[in-house]
Design a protein around this nucleic acid. Structure first.
Lengths: 238, 238
DNA sequence: CGGGTCATTGAGCGTTATCAACAGCAGTGG
DNA sequence: CCACTGCTGTTGATAACGCTCAATGACCCG
């Protein structure tokens, strides 16, 4: 039992899901079992292809992925990032086709999550996870529509921090940013040159330290207040 | 029976839902019954308030609404528009809180749709409707992130046409745009002045005719091709 | 007729894009 | 071991797209 607990503590996906909603022991056991059958994916693998059928749901155990929309003329928009504990391809339609591609950004570990309907508390966790996904999509629309370059970047970095903290993998307001500045640019509707300059600004004012893809906030709360940014909530009991 | 058919034909919400997926007769009957108990809302009514609990699902029978995110400093982002046949507040969580406000833009008619679980084909329609909602959110992110002012506006107008046509209420590529140029601006992350100028451009090149909120496309397909825009699809059997 | 909202137009400016060059670093093959 | 290549990050100079501010006109409604 203490071995199971230790195992759970080191598994970001389980940490996240069990923080979304109280999971009963059976649900946790089912998760722990599911998590043992891992598949791996190298960076750059298409986990879901736009316009194609969605195979089955997957739970991210380790690594980052991105949801990408490619335009005919070469432009691309990164819709969102997918982190450990996030579910992908979780749709209730049998014949669903994907509206965007999902690509791994790093080496990843994935597993097939316990089926819907087998554990009520887990079903709720899936539902809440989807609600978060939608809430973050709304946040992304707002970022792109209303915020300037500095605000967009800061807001995105704070969102990533918030999400990684939920999965318990951003100790001391610090984490590894696996994407290039160009990817950040394609996420925020800016150019990589401008992302670079905006990062310089944030460094100059000591808001962040970023070196070799390692990001650390000087003080995330201060930055949050400066942006009037509040953590995303989707449930009254969250 | 022919009376029921005639009724159904003139009900955009039923048209839309039954075009999402083949509805069996019982489902149609339940819908027809639900549709008889209408509630009304004047323009400017908050149907759902950000940060508050979501009461119950509603089906839009007539009129337009907007999903809005208000920032602390007065900026606002219109996330999406909601049209006849769209469902609002359709979430599976019991304790869900809204991540954005929904406001009526025109006089509206709404009803409570048949509960989930009572008609399988209707449940599927709800699911597909949600999938569309998400797909349009992805489209909105892409618009804001990658398209310039002209493309954003054209793309939005074509999306609205596509959706109204699905509900059978945009004959001859023509419909009423109920929102002000300022609202369009807040949707597309531009200023109303620039929306105005972009509309002038579209008029000058005879892409659209817009007068007194009445919009007509000269040739929607030509415009679509110019933008490389394809109708949104979410299902293999759509 | 007055007041309000919305659409329209002009002038000037600022944020961000574009273009270009270079440095650092990892991997690769001679 | 060292060119060589490719990718990423960095910096400078210039340009453009869309913003701001301001004024005016059209229309509706009380």
């Amino acid at each position: 039992m203490s071995a199971a607990l230790a195992f759970e503590i080191r598994e970001p996906a389980i940490t996240r899901l069990s923080r979304l909603i109280r999971l009963d022991p059976q649900a946790k056991a089912a998760l722990a079992e599911a998590v043992r059958h891992r598949t791996h994916a190298p960076p750059g693998r298409e986990l879901i292809a736009e316009g194609h059928a969605i195979r089955g749901p997957q739970l991210i155990l380790q690594g980052w992925a991105a949801r990408v929309r490619q335009l005919a003329d070469g432009r691309r928009q990164i819709i969102s990032f997918l982190l450990p504990g996030d579910l992908i391809g979780l749709c209730d339609q049998p014949e669903a086709i994907a509206t965007s591609t999902i690509v791994s950004l790093t080496d990843m570990q994935l597993c097939v999550p316990p089926k819907r309907g087998s554990h009520p508390s887990l079903d709720k966790a899936y539902t809440i996870s989807r609600a978060f996904e939608e809430a973050y999509l709304v946040a992304q629309v707002t970022r792109l529509g209303q915020l300037d370059a500095y605000e967009r970047l800061a807001d995105l970095l704070l969102e990533l921090l918030e999400r990684l903290q939920l999965a318990g993998i951003a100790p001391e307001e610090r984490f590894t940013l696996p994407m290039t500045q160009e990817m950040i640019a394609d996420t925020l509707g800016l150019t990589s040159v401008h992302i670079n300059r905006t990062l310089q600004t944030m460094r100059r004012e000591n808001s962040i330290v970023l070196k070799n893809r390692e990001l650390r906030f000087a003080d995330a709360d201060t930055l949050r207040r400066a942006l009037d940014r509040y953590p995303v909530r989707v449930s009254a009991c969250g």
